[in-house]
Every structure is written in C-alpha cells, then in structure tokens.
C-alpha cells in the first residue's frame, strides 16, 4: 500500500536556483546562499585568475578577494545584466590591479634573464605537450600588459567573443580587437626570440 502511494506521489524535482535568484536570496540576508554561490563559481573564477596570473597561490588569493568584493558589493548588482558578466568584470578588475602592481615590482628584473634558444632549435620537431605549452605561455605572456593578457585569456581560453569581452570591460569592441591583435603580435615576437620552434607552429594570423 505504501509502495503504491509512493508511486502515486507527484515527485517535485529540487530545482537549483539560478544566479539571479541566489543573489536575491543573499540580499535578503541568507549567508548560506552566498556560500552556495561561491561554491558554484569557484572553479570558473579561480581558472580565470590562474590563467591571467599564472601562479596557483596568487590566483587563489585573488579569487578569494574577488568573492569578498562580491559580498561587499552585491547590492550594486543590476539583475537586468547577466550575473557572469558582472562577476567577470570584478575578476578582471582585481586581477589587472594585481598584475599591474606585480609588474611594477618585477619590472626589468626578470625579462632578460630567461634562456634564449638558438635559431637552430627551430628546426627541431615539436611534440606538443600541454605542460610545456603552459610553461611557454606563462613565460612569453609576461610581455603583455595586464589588460592585453586578460583579454587574450578570456578570448582564447574562455572562448568569449570580443563583443562579450567589451561588455565585461566596459569598452568598445574595436578596442578589444586591437588588444587581441597587439597581444598576438607581441607574443609571436617573444616566441621567435625564446621559443623559435613554437614560433613556427603558432603563426601570426
């Protein structure tokens, strides 16, 4: 009998609240909802910070700072905009600030100390390995400005089109495309200097 009743009971699937609903609940004073939001966005936010900053511990600190700023500024979020756009804007602001400070500290210290490979290396056959690509990217992307790097990362690694990046950064789409063009050019130059075998691979479009 009870089994029969159980079958007849309408099952209401638990629906996860979307980002906007969560924000509304948080604004009503529910700290648990904020914890849920942090958990939901941690990987995305951390990954973006990591790609921009290139160092796990710093990326973790910056990602945490992003969430604290999120908590403090949640009242300012306008629900007519996509939550992720607003969140990404916060990530890029904090990460770019961090990069600018770090660059001014490290400027002119490391840039000329790295191993410059000889032109002969360019003839080597490259078997592309992810770890190596990551190392090369971290190495050569130092030459980019924080904004160029952020735009490059969002476009290439987060697959965001330039129109969406422009919304996040609050600038024109043509500005984003300019930054992308310049970033590619600078990285290609660095590859030719430091990793000629990869320069052959990653040709300028």
């Amino acid at each position: 009998m009870s089994a029969e009743l159980h079958v007849m009971m309408p099952t209401t699937p638990s629906v996860e609240p979307d980002d906007r609903q969560l924000v509304q609940t948080i604004r009503e004073g529910d700290a648990d909802a904020f914890e849920l939001l942090v958990r939901r966005k941690t990987s995305k936010v951390y990954a973006l910070c990591y790609r921009i900053i290139g160092n796990g511990e710093d990326a973790k600190d910056i990602a945490q700072l992003v969430f604290i700023k999120l908590w403090e500024n949640l009242e300012k979020y306008d629900a007519s905009y996509a939550f992720d756009t607003w969140l990404y804007r916060m990530v890029t602001n904090v990460a770019i600030d961090f990069m600018r400070n770090r660059q001014s500290r490290e400027n002119a210290v490391n840039s000329n100390l790295r191993l410059v490979k000889t032109a002969a290396d360019a003839e080597q056959t490259v078997v592309v390995q992810r770890k190596e690509v990551e190392h090369v990217f971290n190495d050569i992307s130092d030459v980019l400005s924080p904004k160029q790097k952020t735009i490059f990362v969002m476009n290439q690694m987060d697959d965001l089109p330039s129109a969406e990046i422009a919304k996040i950064l609050g600038c024109r789409e043509s500005t984003v495309r300019n930054h992308l063009f310049n970033a590619r050019k600078l990285m290609q130059q660095q590859l030719q200097k430091r990793y000629p075998e990869y320069a052959q691979l990653w040709r300028e479009r």
Binding site: F34, K44, V128, V153
Partner: peptide, 29 residues
C-alpha cells in the same frame, strides 16, 4: 591557432581544494 586555446576551458581547482577555498572565503566574510 589552437596552441594556446588548448590551455583553457578546464575548470581548475584552487590549491587545497574547493571546500577549503569556500570555507576560507566565508571565514573572511
């Protein structure tokens, strides 16, 4: 052109794991 695109996408886990990360954020808040 996919050389560097190959790096993205994956959802990365912060050092120490997501649980520790979230508790840290909540404690700071």
């Amino acid at each position: 052109d996919v050389l560097f695109r190959s790096l993205g996408g994956a959802e990365l886990v912060p050092p120490g794991g997501v649980d520790a990360f979230v508790s840290d954020v909540m404690r700071q808040v």
